[in-house]
């Protein structure tokens, strides 16, 4: 892997807590001393947040589509009647 990708991997190991406690302390020290590294770490953390948001949105969309089918398709009439009886 090229150097920049290795750097990303080392930040990932730190952010996702794959490092030993000694490595983590050393990395924290590097973050304090190195402004560029600090920026990379902040941006990479936000990148993970973006991926998590995206994954969650995709899952939620899938749930909504399945819910529509379950509450409206004739295939699930027994289920629909049961739920109606609970709220009537």
């Amino acid at each position: 892997m090229r150097i920049s990708l290795n750097k990303i991997k080392s930040i990932e190991d730190h952010l996702l807590k794959k490092n030993s406690s000694e490595e983590a302390v050393l990395f924290e020290a590097k973050i304090i001393l190195d402004t560029d590294l600090r920026r990379d770490v902040i941006a990479q953390k936000l990148a993970y947040d973006a991926i998590h948001c995206y994954g969650q949105d995709q899952l939620r969309e899938e749930i909504i589509q399945i819910e529509k089918i379950i509450f409206h398709s004739p295939r699930y009439t027994v289920f629909q009647k049961l739920i109606q009886s609970i709220f009537n």
Binding site: S4, L5, I8, K9, E12, A43, Q44, A47, A50, I51
Partner: peptide
């Protein structure tokens, strides 16, 4: 990692 790098750089 290449994909992650792209996003990180955009951020």
């Amino acid at each position: 990692f290449k994909c992650l790098e792209k996003i990180r750089d955009n951020v």
